[in-house]
Amino acid sequence: MSDIALDPSLGSVDLTRQLCNIFSVSGEERAIADAVEAVLAERAPHLTVTRDGDTVIARTELGRERRVAIAGHLDTVPVNGNLPVRDERDPETGEAVIWGRGTVDMKAGVAVQLVLAVELDDPAVDLTWIWYDHEEVSSDLNGLGRALRNRPELFAADFAILGEPSNGTIEGGCNGTMRALVTYAGKRAHSARSWMGVNAIHRAGAALERLSAFEAERVLVDGLEYREGLNAVRISGGVAGNVIPDRCEIEVNYRFAPSKDLAEAEGVIREFFADADTVEIVDRAPGARPGLDAPLAQQFVEAVGAPPVAKLGWTDVSRFSGLGIPAVNFGPGNPLLAHADDERVPIAQIEATERALRNWLNR
């Protein structure tokens, strides 16, 4: 067990500070997972706790008719002079904030979840609390995905909430994402006799012009507006300063509305790059529909008291949606500040998120 003592009784604001000051860059989550497991063992006898690597799963077994899963990731992107955290005033709004790595993405949300997991021993629904590792890196390392594969029986639920930063409002579903390597071939020649070859970089130019002119669609899905995007994110090509290149490779990322499945998204990419020599799909993850027509989701929207919006990005709600579990994002912090060096979360949002979840789970 951990020698780092967390104290949820101090509330989610103080607990946010404690959690953020535990170094937990992706791949180094052991200390924070140990600390979470230790506080549950000490203060939450009403929960059955399971550990899978550095993922901690805690469940009530009250025999309720419905079960809600509430999840948050423990890791952060690399630190850049922004730990330990400190209290400040937001330079734009003047409100009190906690500044530093992990405050937004997403240890304030984790703090809210841990406070309520310890406190709520008789909620209106059965609860599955999940704190997982390796969210900020390659999806094949994701602790939630690993635990789902290893212990699928622990994740059955009627509704799921992911504590990703959402400014304390509900963000429904998420976009899907797909990456492809698009290759244009040519023929090498000496640059002094360029007409003897075929310049692969020049061949790729038309595709880059199409990408530059691409206008992202706005797609309504179950009443929420998602924005799509297709962008070049990396390009490589060239042999030497006096050689006509015979290969140019463009890596593209397609963010698509959850109304499309993976096959439809792949079809968009292949049609867009029909003039390429090869198109290789190297990463893919489906989106998640908002799921707001589920009775529990409707009750949650009513409890939060603000209209939901679309999640313009990919999150692990997709994993729950893939299991047929309606899922939303709900957590403190501005998602536009996630990973920023001046990452900061409003204290009032942490408190409001805690109140909304507590009131709903106790209804």
Results as ranks from 00 to 15, higher is better:
D7T: 15
S9F: 08
G11C: 12
N21R: 02
N21G: 03
I22G: 00
F23E: 13
S24H: 05
V25R: 00
I32G: 01
I32K: 05
A33P: 02
V36D: 00
A38E: 13
R43W: 08
R43Q: 15
P45T: 07
V49C: 02
V49H: 04
T50H: 12
R51P: 00
R51T: 12
D54K: 00
R59M: 10
R64F: 08
R64G: 12
R66A: 14
R67K: 12
A69S: 15
D75F: 04
V77E: 00
V79K: 03
N80E: 13
G81L: 10
R86E: 08
E88N: 06
R89Y: 06
R89W: 03
A96E: 15
V97E: 00
W99L: 11
G100R: 00
G100S: 02
G109H: 03
L114Y: 08
L116P: 00
D121I: 06
D121Y: 10
W131T: 11
E135F: 06
E136M: 08
S138F: 12
S139M: 13
D140E: 15
D140P: 00
A147N: 04
P152W: 13
P152Y: 13
L154K: 05
F155N: 04
A156G: 14
A156C: 04
I161R: 03
N167T: 14
G168M: 04
E171Y: 10
G173V: 09
N175Q: 15
A180H: 02
A180C: 02
A180N: 01
V182E: 01
V182P: 00
K187Q: 13
K187S: 09
A189I: 11
G197F: 12
R203D: 08
A204E: 03
A206R: 15
A206C: 06
L211K: 04
A213T: 07
F214C: 08
L220A: 13
V221R: 00
L224D: 03
E225T: 15
E225L: 13
Y226H: 12
R227W: 08
N231T: 10
N242I: 13
R247D: 05
C248K: 09
I250V: 15
E251I: 05
V252L: 02
N253H: 04
R255T: 09
E266W: 06
I269T: 03
I269P: 00
I269Q: 01
E271S: 15
E271G: 14
F272L: 07
F272Y: 14
D275P: 03
D275Y: 11
I281Y: 03
R284E: 13
A285W: 03
A288L: 07
G291Q: 02
L296P: 08
Q298E: 11
Q299K: 12
Q299M: 08
V304C: 02
V309L: 05
K311E: 05
W314V: 09
T315W: 03
T315S: 05
S318K: 08
S318L: 05
G322A: 14
L323E: 11
I325L: 01
I325S: 02
P326S: 07
F330G: 02
F330W: 09
P335G: 01
L336N: 14
H339G: 01
A340K: 14
D342W: 11
E343I: 07
I347D: 04
E351C: 07
R358I: 10
N359R: 15
N359A: 15
L361I: 11
L361A: 07
